[in-house]
Design a protein around this nucleic acid. Structure first.
Length: 278
DNA sequence: ACAGGATCCTGGGGGC
DNA sequence: TGCCCCCAGGATCCTG
């Protein structure tokens, strides 16, 4: 489910609710997540103060005292929610951090594609992301880098945008939305883009992500932010999930195809491959 | 290097 | 109502 805007919203919601608070104790369910949970981690986490809540790509990082990090990935259906201790117990709750002031931070995940990992030390954290070859944040991505990565690949734009090693944080919804914004066909090959088109796409990614962050992300099924509020971007979608509906620019019905293994939505007129190819 | 498919899971929706 | 199939904001591993 969650892409960069949803993760960013969660981080912003959680920051004032948990920063400065202490983790009193940790409860872990019996059902395995994507990465195995080590039994030592509970003891390592207990008694630590949360210094800060941060984001890298689609990862949520709780920075704790003692150079310790608790890193979450929400996968498709994960949620990280700060609630009162006596709040209704949601099904599929896998991790509960009991904080001070009768508050809890709960990690729930229906499909269990998400993960939670404890990492000791900033260096180890850097290694963790380096090993995943996680690409730059879209907002900090340099023009030259992006042009080069596109020029060097024969993959289609949809596949490049989804590749976390090229740029971190874009998923299926915002890949389609960014390509619509840039008026580029999702099947265009990276190396077929002119420098101007590459720049247009980079700016479109930033524009679309910022727009979505302002609206607290997209709620289609499960997603809610760290405080339980839903997103609003789904009301503003122009490509993703609009199959057969009129393009907001030219009224042509939005088409759906399968690309890079994912359903892909675009306007066959505004994003026509031939018109932009040269 | 890359495309495509399968895999990990659960739940919701559509068709019959 | 039940059943079966397909689909889903992600990532990874395998084959060709």
């Amino acid at each position: 489910m969650p892409e960069l805007p949803e993760v960013e919203t969660t981080v912003r919601d959680l920051e004032p609710l948990v920063a400065g608070r202490y983790i009193r104790s940790v409860m872990v369910g019996s059902r395995a997540l994507r990465k195995p949970w080590s039994s030592e981690w509970q003891h390592q986490l207990a008694g630590r103060r949360v210094r800060k809540v941060a984001r890298r790509g689609k990862w949520i990082i709780l920075e704790l005292d003692g150079d310790l990090f608790l890193v979450f990935h929400l996968g498709m259906t994960g949620r990280l929610l700060a609630v009162a201790q006596d709040a209704v117990h949601e099904p599929h709750t896998h991790i509960i951090l009991r904080m001070g002031q009768r508050r809890e931070l709960r990690f729930t995940d229906i499909r269990r594609f998400g993960s939670a990992t404890v990492i000791q030390g900033g260096k180890a954290l850097a290694t963790f992301f380096a090993r995943a070859k996680l690409g730059p944040e879209p907002f900090e991505m340099e023009t030259a880098y992006w042009r080069e990565r596109l020029a060097a690949t024969g993959r289609c734009l949809k596949a490049v945008l989804l590749d976390q090693r090229v740029v971190a944080g874009v998923g299926n919804i915002y890949a389609d939305e960014a390509l619509f914004e840039a008026r580029l066909h999702p099947a265009r090959l990276g190396r077929s883009l002119t420098a101007a088109e590459a720049d247009r796409l980079r700016r479109a990614v930033v524009t679309v992500l910022n727009r979505a962050i302002k609206l607290r992300g997209t709620t289609i099924r499960n997603y809610v932010g760290g405080s339980g509020l839903k997103g609003l971007y789904q009301e503003k979608k122009r490509a993703y999930g609009r199959t057969g509906q009129a393009c907001v620019r030219c009224a042509t019905p939005i088409r759906q195809v399968r690309l890079a293994g994912r359903s892909t939505h675009f306007c066959p007129l505004c994003q026509e491959a031939k018109r932009t190819q040269y």
